[in-house]
Design a protein around this nucleic acid. Structure first.
Length: 277
DNA sequence: CTGAGCACCTGAGGGC
DNA sequence: TGCCCTCAGGTGCTCA
């Protein structure tokens, strides 16, 4: 579900709405495991700690504690966080409840994680640098140190379709199934093109297109197709601005040719076979 | 090492 | 109404 713009939108809202430092008074887990087992027997790790910062790396959200440790979470396909006044207000598929207290105002609130498909996770983060999920990650596309040369270097030796490579977090993080299709449309490159067939000039254009589409999606608060919600429960608005994603058989916005839908490595790709080569 | 396919889950929607 | 099938924003693992 959520790609970089959706996770970053949520991060910004959490940073704004969560009065920090937020003392964790209690943490409750549902009986279900998420993608990884719940840290049910390590409550001591959380209770008494204060969340001092909300960070994002790739599509991971990190609740950082004062001592540098924290919580590593992922929304999977259908995860969402919301704030309630009381931790009693539980709904179906609520899996984690954090009872928090603002240390300045003594006001309490509950931060609740809901995830119907349970592809997300919530785990202890002790060492950011050595964590196996974090250390293999490639460049942040919206950081100033990501260059088209970096993209080109990582892609031009590969025989996979460029669409698959864009979704590979070791190459560039945060680009998922929607924005991969959208960025390729903007760059005029077919999702079927092999990485080794991407020219330098095209890598430059593709890098620019990725940055543009992610920034635009951020402005519109991300895309809500089904489950994705802001902290407030509101939907993002980017889904109404897709050029190709979910527009199978509809006319291309540029040339009127019908948009094609194909399957690549089990995921749907959308593109215009006239505009993209 | 690389790439393809599967697995993990629930729920919505279409066809019959 | 109900059953069965397909599909969905992610990603780690196994196997060839």
């Amino acid at each position: 579900m959520p790609e970089l713009p959706e996770v970053e939108t949520l991060r910004r809202q959490l940073a704004q709405e969560l009065p920090m430092p937020a003392l964790i008074r209690e943490v409750k887990f549902s009986v279900h495991n998420l993608r990884t087992p719940m840290p049910r027997h390590q409550k001591d790790f959380f209770i008494g700690q204060s969340i001092v910062n909300i960070e994002r790396r790739a599509k991971y959200l990190i609740f950082r504690f004062e001592n540098g440790e924290g919580v590593l979470t992922h929304l999977g396909m259908t995860g969402s966080w919301r704030i309630e006044n009381s931790s009693d207000l539980q709904k179906k598929h609520d899996h984690v409840v954090l009872d928090l207290e603002n240390q300045n105002t003594r006001k309490s609130l509950a931060l609740i994680y809901n995830d119907p498909r349970r592809f997300g996770f919530f785990e202890i983060l002790k060492n950011h640098e050595t964590h196996k999920l974090l250390k293999k990650l490639g460049a942040e596309p919206l950081s100033s140190d990501w260059s088209w040369q970096d993209l080109y270097e990582k892609v031009h030796t590969r025989s996979s379709p460029i669409k698959n490579l864009l979704m590979n977090a070791e190459i560039v993080v945060g680009v998922g199934n929607i924005y991969a299709s959208e960025a390729l449309f903007r760059a005029g490159i077919s999702p079927l093109r092999l990485g080794c067939r991407i020219k330098k000039r095209e890598a430059e254009k593709l890098k620019k297109s990725i940055v543009e589409i992610l920034n635009e999606a951020l402005i519109y608060g991300g895309s809500s197709i089904d489950d994705y919600r802001h902290l407030s429960g509101q939907k993002g608005q980017m889904q109404s601005r897709f050029s190709v994603y979910g527009r199978s058989k509809l006319p291309c916005l540029v040339c009127q040719h019908p948009v094609k839908k194909i399957t690549q490595s089990g995921r749907s790709s959308f593109y215009c076979s006239k505009c993209q080569a």
